[in-house]
Nucleic acid binder design. Sequence first.
RNA 1: GGGGCCGUAGCUCAAUUGGUUAGAGUACCAGACUGUCGAUCUGGACGUUGCGGGUUCGAGUCCCGUCGGCCUCGCCA
Length: 587
Amino acid sequence: MSKLKRTCTCGQLRLKDVSSTIVLMGWVDSVRDHGGVIFIDLRDRDGITQVVFNPDAANKSYELAHQLRSEYVIGIRGKVAARPAGTINPDLATGEIEVIADELEIFNKSETPPFEIIDNSNVSLELRLKHRYLDLRRPEMQKHLVFRHKVCQVMREYFDGLGFIDIETPVLTKSTPEGARDYLVPSRVNQGKVYALPQSPQLFKQVLMVAGYDRYFQIVRCFRDEDLRAQRQPEFTQIDMEMSFVDESDIMQIIEGLIAAIFEKVVGKTINTPFPRLSYRESMVYYGCDAPDLRFDMKIQDVSYIVKESNFKVFLDAIKSGGQVRAINATGCGNYSRKEIDELTEFVGQFGAKGLAWFKVEETGLVSSITKFFPPEILQKIQQHMNAKTGDLLLFVADKEKVVSQSLAHLRVHLGHKNNLIDPVEFNFVWIVDFPLFEYSEDAKRYVALHHPFTSPRQEDLPLLEEKPLEARARAYDLVLNGVELGGGSIRIHSPEIQKRVFRLLGINDDEAYQKFGFLLDALKYGAPPHGGIALGVDRMIALLLHLDDIREVIAFPKTQKATCPMTEAPSEVDPQQLRELGIRLG
RNA sequence: GGGGCCGUAGCUCAAUUGGUUAGAGUACCAGACUGUCGAUCUGGACGUUGCGGGUUCGAGUCCCGUCGGCCUCGCCA
């Protein structure tokens, strides 16, 4: 073992430490060899300190220092000195001092790294993930993970302070129908049977409420075997909580307090609470989605009732077949070229829109190749309804509701970015409330739960359950930040009868319900308190708070889009013996 | 499962309509240099153009397939 013992880290030393003898350890960030004197930037996760090797001060160490290369791990002993006038580095926290080394020990050499350990490097993600231990050395990544740690600490303190207790729930659990595809783990002891990794601890936390553990929370890993996105990993982390004897406003208030605490203690900003609330219906009407970005306006307008008086077949056909025509006013975009509009058309095409009708607003009125299909008074009504001014561009999608909503929702956000309508440092929170309990699935040919099957209907909507299920509203709420769904929750069903009614409506008969969720239905029979909760995506939240658009930047060891890990090369083949013990065969 | 973009030196990229020996920056190696901090200067080394096939007198460039990465639709209670 080294005779050196570290006395401080690479970000600590200041002018007040001048002339004290210290020992630093860390990685060689860069070497500047001037022949007579060698400068080393020594890095650890706390910062960088300049170390000077001078032949006049310590010739032996100076000679050894010639061997130093990037990423060598070394320890040095030396005396802290004020930097000579004119050589102060204002970019370093330790820039007013340097350490004159008298002793150098090389703990380990390093091969030349496959990429430089610097911020702002635009190395491919694949290479970064393959050598994640090098990537994570970058100050930027260390900042992300430290930030994440601090947010999680605030979460724990906050919930602890309010009397919540942290309880772990199983990772090996039971596969449940509905929802995402499960990751499965075959059981060796029970051949032919499998565990599933939890998509969330939903049922366990409800059982904990029945057990009387009011106020539970957990920072917990969840697993969903679906295709990946920049915002979606197969395993991700939720801050999960559940409470008894509460209603929606209790949960929302506590979460608002949590967010406020995170902003105050970690982000260093104050955030206004309570957050605004928007009904699901309004959100769909004005923004075409249930996770609207409210940092800019540009609301969607329904013009079906106006354009049905026109002669434009595309619009008329859409309306006739039960669809609609809605539009957005791209304010000030009247100067868009044909090519730009074509690009927008192509853009909405990926959401199923068969076209994008447009009018440019000029002094003389609406101008477009389709103007001839619209009587002047209709054009005027459109212009008025859309509050269109000279220089604006009106964009229309005509189709069934889902296509129109989705196309315009994405188009709205696209234009918001394209036209710099979005303040990149704003944090805009909104609650979406009054969700329907069910929606009809064309694929499954049945009703499916919009939230999940344990969400309580509103008391006054109970009579609607069997008669008009699509009109029944859920006691659910989603928290949206800058157009991204952070998470959601609900007041749960605590009555076994209502839970059975909901299962039946979802096409899950009593036998099936007992087979899949028997333990929950049983638990509800033994004095289940009214309860509810919420879960928020931690990775997404951290990424948004750091203004990052890829959650892999805040996860230490994330997966690629094909759900592989370039570093460990997971998933991998296993020894045939392992498979035999499990009683399974692959491929 | 569908659509799109990409793959050239360790890294980031370039290479005219298919045309001579595939370049640059950086990293790396060697030498010089006692105040640099993106050190500088001089020199050097580094390529199965992801892989396989095809078209062609000739392919980094065109075609087909395949592997990998990214974005996206579907999917994600």
